[in-house]
Design a binder for these strands. Structure first.
Lengths: 166, 166
DNA sequence: CTTGGTAAGTAGTGATTCGCAACTTAAATC
DNA sequence: GATTTAAGTTGCGAATCACTACTTACCAAG
């Protein structure tokens, strides 16, 4: 039977299945990207993405159910509904940018214009990387797993000590 | 007809559709995660993930086709085949970690043990963030789009100037 | 207040994919 | 030679996807 088991039940030690449960379907990330690009209404999503209407309705509902989008009826035109990113939805930006940058760099090498830049000085953003607590950039070979109990704080800064003491 | 158009044809200005074309299917990220966790063989993936065998075979082939995994017959046991991450596959680590961290933080708030730590000092890694060229952390409101031509270098370091002059 | 148009969503219909189990092939092991 | 193991492949029913057409609620013009 195609009764698909939620992915999050498979490896609960990890947040990845939880994230995929919410965002792992075919159009979810494209809808999220559109929402970041100030697309707010059903018809806008539909014409922007070319997605089938029933699928779009289903995805938007799912994203709302997962608390990634919020559904606000427009006060000025009560036919219209605005889908807006919640805080939880906005928090997906690093994941989306990381995916996007990977696609740019490794997928058929498109220079990809327009470029995403820092609004303050209009310089391109850096590639998204894994960072150690002291901001060193880490690769896959620099990482390993530890139980939470094994982690011991070493050489806190003043700020961090003050924060930890709360 | 369900003849699904590749997502990358829809918005070519962006690497996201390209990334989703390769990694957007149901099990792809779970397989990638397993590969990062030193799962290399078909039967290991199968028992680790509980995925159907035909789907697993299909996904592994697709990931190999996309250059994310490489398929190496084992010299010692010629029945066995090792699926190993390529450089392109390893480059997905930031995207995967970003997704994982989002799932941890926003999905039912699991503390998530074991924790991913820096191998050098066994301290937990930082949350993945968007960074400006000078390493400032940026949020969604700090970003905007620019044409590549509009970007002008300002205040290069010696190294960057030397690199740009090549 | 009726007609036309727009926004959002639903229903119907095939094509495709998914999930499960059983089967196949080739190589290693007993 | 017989059995076991690794890596798939095949067949089938269920779920999902995509396309089109239809519906409902609302706004706007005449």
């Amino acid at each position: 039977m195609g009764l698909r088991e939620p992915l999050k039940l498979i490896a609960e030690d990890c947040g990845l299945p939880v994230a995929l449960e919410a965002m792992g379907e075919r159009w979810s990330f494209m809808i999220l990207r559109a929402a970041f690009n100030r697309i707010y209404h059903f018809e806008e999503f539909q014409s922007e993405l070319g997605i089938a209407r029933n699928i779009l309705a289903n995805r938007l509902s799912r994203l709302v159910d997962h608390g990634i989008l919020m559904r606000n009826p427009c006060p000025d035109d009560r036919r219209k509904i605005e889908y807006r990113l919640t805080e939880k939805g906005l928090a997906l930006l690093p994941a989306m940018i990381a995916l996007r940058q990977w696609g740019e760099q490794w997928g058929s090498g498109i220079p990809s214009t327009p470029v995403l830049v820092d609004e303050r000085d209009h310089q391109p953003i850096r590639p998204v990387t894994i960072r150690a607590h002291d901001d060193r950039v880490l690769g896959a070979q620099d990482l390993c797993w530890r139980q939470a109990e094994e982690i011991r704080p070493l050489s806190m800064s003043r700020e961090e000590e003050a924060q930890a003491a709360e």
